[in-house]
Design a protein around this nucleic acid. Structure first.
Lengths: 331, 331
DNA sequence: CTGAAAGCGCTTACAG
DNA sequence: CTGAAAGCGCTTACAG
């Protein structure tokens, strides 16, 4: 910028004004500055600018997902981007892989880069380490799971209700032996969905059979084996509820490999591309990842815009979409 | 940091040293600093630090995708993250939606935030506006499509060869009327795949029928209609080659809706979850998005680590995966 | 091993 | 409308 000022024969203040589009600058000077910028190939350093700027905003926000490559989170990501882009706010994103240590490294790296806001899918456990940042004015929103140990906004799916309605739907078709395949219940969403599964059984007076509950450790791959174990056991279920999108892929692979896709009923939590093309189509309880991301971004920006009221907690509905697999009756 | 120094009764230099883990500092002082950090809830400002630091590195890189929510790009994203994370480098990502104006806003926003490296999926057109940044030392790598107007590293899939092998495979099954459904050919990958399609036809002495080539404008949705138009026309194809993952989803939806999945052969470019679960499974020419991302990140980091040689251009193979849909013979 | 001082690239009152 | 000067939160020679 110094060089630009020298070449254009104006002061630094003037260069700063034209580069930032602050109004009062004579056309002739502006022209000279723009010319110098062009000649020198000058690129404005917004980072240095924000250091001195009154509000200290970096126009950057951070996202901490479980995995940026999971289609659920990548849609949340896109939704956040869509509300951030018109404000010229850019997005840093990372994957915690459900590891609290990695999550903390990520968020602290983000905070050290002075993000104005943070949207995080919290790993299991306490998040009070973020209290100082909330106090310092960072707009914090939790997504997919509620906060623990810190007061912040949140946006989650109706996990319990969705799972209960999925399983009630299977029961309504006549099923009494229903298998559950889902993540370890230390993950909030998995615990809620298991709770919904149990609630539906209890409401219909069906005793729970621990042999029908499987927790694959490595999702897609393990889900195949766990599902096979369930279906090839001595007293197999007549229906399966899969509690997560990647698990559904693995479970479906097994169902089709065994050729039981027309005899075993199936409902998955969370929708997938091609789920409607399969035969039978996969009945799912759909989440709204784009809606979750949009809401989260709006809550975050409202705080960045000055909202200082109490924290807000939103729950998005998870409607049942019937496509065939969930409407198969027991034999 | 000033407050920390005051509370710990040491100089700023000392605080800086313990916060950055620069060795030579007495245990007692370090303890006092850490205590002060804890009490004050101090959060290091890496952005301010990088301003004065010798190498001026921000430990941040930028990714410009077509769409962060496309599973292909979100896997590239994850791969880049996996090589960046061990170096404590964080990742800014955005979507251009194939719009050159949006791409430029994004990259310039990234550059204004002083990213050390940039991985971009270029929209159609000239990219010489990035020359000044390459000259200034930004590590630039193009992905999915080669550079135009600027000398930079690149990593792409074998688009032409993959498409040619897919179509040759269909021809080997006996097909002579093969439909093409793909993006507008102003997109490099679409043009290359169309070229591969044509090459395969030509090699086998099959005349091209323009009525068998469809370009949906809005992918998933339009692909359904375009495919229906092809299949319900007066002289329908006996096989279809779909040149993009989202288009494959739409095309498949139509094929299954019309119930012709066992009579019309189908090969898609790029793999999809559940593609192997469908009946018949979708035969695809697979890309390796994770490998592309890893390679791109490695090229980028090698430049950040001091490589200043000529630009390198990698092409990743696109093997054919036979799953059934591509092995259906003509009637 | 520690501290005082200069300065990274900007923005912002403050004069003029 | 324009410029000289101070200062954002840090790091880095340079002395000691």
């Amino acid at each position: 910028m110094r060089e630009v000022a020298a070449l254009a024969e104006v002061s630094l203040s003037t260069v700063s004004r034209v580069v930032n589009g602050s109004p009062p600058v004579a056309a002739e000077l502006a022209r000279r500055v723009e010319q110098a910028v062009e000649i020198l190939g000058y690129r404005h350093d917004q980072i240095a600018g924000s250091l001195r700027r009154a509000n200290r905003a970096s126009a950057t926000i951070g996202l901490v997902f479980e995995d940026v490559a999971n289609p659920f989170f990548s849609l949340v990501h896109r939704a956040v981007e869509d509300v951030a882009a018109p404000r010229s706010v850019l997005t840093l994103a990372g994957s915690s892989d459900e590891d609290p240590v990695r999550e903390r490294e990520l968020t602290e790296g983000l905070l050290a880069r002075r993000v104005d806001g943070l949207i995080v899918v919290p790993t299991p456990g306490d998040h009070s380490y973020l209290e100082r940042d909330v106090a310092a004015g960072v707009a914090l929103v939790f997504v997919d799971r509620p906060p623990e140990g810190v007061d912040a906004d949140s946006v989650v799916s109706a996990n319990f209700e969705g799972a209960r309605s999925a399983v009630s739907h299977l029961i309504a078709q006549g099923h009494r032996r229903i298998g559950f395949v889902g993540d370890q219940p230390d993950i909030y969403t998995a615990a809620e969905r298991l709770r919904g599964f149990r609630a539906a059984l209890a409401e219909h007076g069906i005793a729970e059979d621990p042999d029908l509950i499987g927790h694959p450790s490595f999702r897609a791959t393990d889900a195949e084996a766990v599902t096979a174990q369930l279906l090839e056991g001595p007293a197999p279920p007549t229906a399966i509820f899969s509690a997560q999108n990647l698990i559904t892929v693995g479970a479906m692979r097994t169902v089709h490999r065994l050729g039981v896709q027309r005899s075993i009923a199936f409902v998955g939590f969370d929708d997938l591309p091609l789920a409607d093309v399969l035969d039978p189509g996969i009945t799912v309880v759909a989440q709204d990842p784009y809606g979750i991301g949009r809401q989260a971004a709006e809550l975050m920006f409202s705080r960045m815009d000055g909202y200082h009221g109490p924290s807000r907690h939103m729950t998005l509905a998870t409607p049942l979409i019937q496509r065939g697999s969930g409407e198969i009756p027991p034999p």
